[in-house]
């Protein structure tokens, strides 16, 4: 399976969501699974949560993966309390993620 990663900046919200969404869709539209590198990200807004879930649903509709890597504890907590976490696979490192996808 072809996999490409996309690196998020410090925040994912209404100011940059279009750019991020386009970037992820560009990967998926090539037929590649996408890994979102969130190691630098310390805030995801309501808009951002929807970018993640939308990406996951588009990936699933294409038979592809969309995984989240390196999410910090506070962002993970936000996903947890709002229930968005239940839709995703989380990995601590890119290696872990790639190995899980390839297996």
């Amino acid at each position: 399976m072809n996999i490409e990663s996309y690196k998020l900046g410090e925040e994912l919200d209404s100011f940059n969501y279009e750019e991020v969404q386009d970037g992820i869709l560009a990967i998926l539209n090539k037929g590649c699974s996408a890994v979102l590198d969130m190691t630098s990200c310390n805030y995801v807004s309501s808009t951002g949560l929807r970018v993640l879930l939308y990406s996951k649903k588009i990936a699933a509709s294409k038979g592809l993966k969309f995984c989240l890597v390196g999410m910090n504890a506070e962002v993970k907590d936000i996903m947890n309390v709002t229930g968005f976490d239940s839709f995703f696979d989380f990995y601590n490192t890119m290696e872990e993620c790639l190995s899980a996808i390839n297996n």
Binding site: S46, L49, D77, I78, V81, T82, G83
Partner: peptide, 20 residues
């Protein structure tokens, strides 16, 4: 009443409670 209220996410948090 939402732990995420400071981010304005109380709607999603309450809906998640009902769903769970």
């Amino acid at each position: 009443y939402a732990s995420s209220g400071r981010f304005g996410m109380q709607v999603d948090e309450l809906k998640n409670l009902v769903k769970k």
